[in-house]
Design a protein around this nucleic acid. Sequence first.
RNA 1: GCGCCUGUAGCUCAGUGGACAGAGCGGCGGCCUUCUAAGCCGCGGGUCGGAGGUUCGAAUCCUCCCAGGCGCACCA
Length: 507
Amino acid sequence: MTRSPDTTGNAVARLADRLSELAGAAVVLERPSDPSHGDYATNVALRTAPQHKQPPRELAADLAARAAELEEIERAEVAGPGFLNLWVTTEWLVRALAEIGADYGAGAPEQAQKIQVELISANPAGPLTVGSARNGAYGDSVARVLAYAGHEVEREYYFNDAGRQVDLFRASVEARRRGDELPEGGYQGEYIDELARVEGDPVARMLEEIRREIAEFRIPVDTWRHQGEIEKHVAEVLPKLDTFEAEGTIWARTSAYEDDKDRPLVRSSDGSYLYFAADVAYVRDKLERGFDRAIYVLGADHHGYVGRLKAAAAMLGYDPERIEVLIYQLVHIVEGGETKKISKRRGDVVFLHELIAKIGIDAARWYLVSRGHDQPIDIDVDLAADRTQKNPVYYVQYAHARIAGILRNVEGDSAGETPTDLASEERDLIKRLLEFPLVVAESAERRAPHAIPIYAIRLADDFHRFYHEHRVVGSETEAFRLTLARATQSIIARALDLIGVEAPERM
RNA sequence: GCGCCUGUAGCUCAGUGGACAGAGCGGCGGCCUUCUAAGCCGCGGGUCGGAGGUUCGAAUCCUCCCAGGCGCACCA
């Protein structure tokens, strides 16, 4: 809505600005799906007709006449109920292509924010699961996109290493070592057996294991926080809260701050902290570190957290808007046509390292981030395992590798004339490249990185079509086509990087 | 019961007010003496869960209903 993409380096946005001046209203340029509707189209006449009290087609005709005068515009036509269809000139497309540099689409938002993205934060009671993998793939991509959009981003991981679950986890390993019965509701599985066979604190081992897996999954976590550390500051925070005592417990009156109910903080009998106490201290810890915004990435099974976290911020006197909770739907595992109920405690869970072993990091990251975060994901492990050849990630990577192949064939200075006429494949490809800044801006604003792989598929599609029809090296417009190929390669690489996927030179 | 999310092609999913609803996979049929055929082209395929409503215009916004997932712990 208030989106203002960086118009200086974005030819489409500049064109929209010029048209906006002519129209006296904000013009949004779309790429029509039907090529007979022009290179770009706008519905501005339809939207502004009521306030002008004029028929939309009349307004559109008026705007068409003036738009046709612009040097960028080859042709302007009114169509349908009042759409304005525009054809741009070849010169404009060639110039726009030439502007595409290494950081094309990188934002410089008028107000860059300091943003923290807290991701995964799984219990160190076992290796990361595919659920954690989605959290990481999604959260890290949001972080990458926000950073590319111009924000200052830090990634943080919070270890719940002081709660009942880790105690239970330790007890489970120790029971296994002694050959005793598992504690009630204890953890089991092969990894528990392995931990039991070696000396040392299993929690410490899991902390190291998780850090290793996260690095392998290409998530550059900047800071690590431990629940034990945060709890040391609970005593400082409690006096700032709106509390009351009942039933042997000190409660936070979060219901007065738009939470569903009040939350227990401290068990009066022994003074032990309940989980929400650490939550509150952690909220303060985050906001006092100077982040304009603290983003939590949580699975749908934690969506009840939204209210209490914002309430915690409000109760401490912070603007609750600084707390943003991103909820992603859960990942289910389908095996043999049946959805598995997964439980880390029971041990019937699919771990991230198993998923990586089966389909690789690139496919895993692509797969986990290429669906909307509001969409549940069913991973059919059998399908994911043998579908690798057909995974769209390879289709996109292949386009990148193909371009690398072309560039290896270039010898010396490239020559050739500037084209005065473009083939449809060239026009389509350039227009696709010019979409990238808007895709990134929207993706950042909506916390929706899944738009990136979708765009990457279309871009690869346009490139493969171009490649099939036209030669680059040795063509009459070699220099121009090399520019086109390089720009395509650069944007594919950037798009893949934004979702943590590699862009290979050869395949 | 209450809250959040979802329901679009055989399957997996895009599409948060605009022009006949798109892609991949699967199915069928074509294209390699030329920069990578992990590619390209073509053909089939949909009452956008259902019913009302708002709007010049609805897959998209509102209401109700149906179906599924997840919550509603002194677990995390």
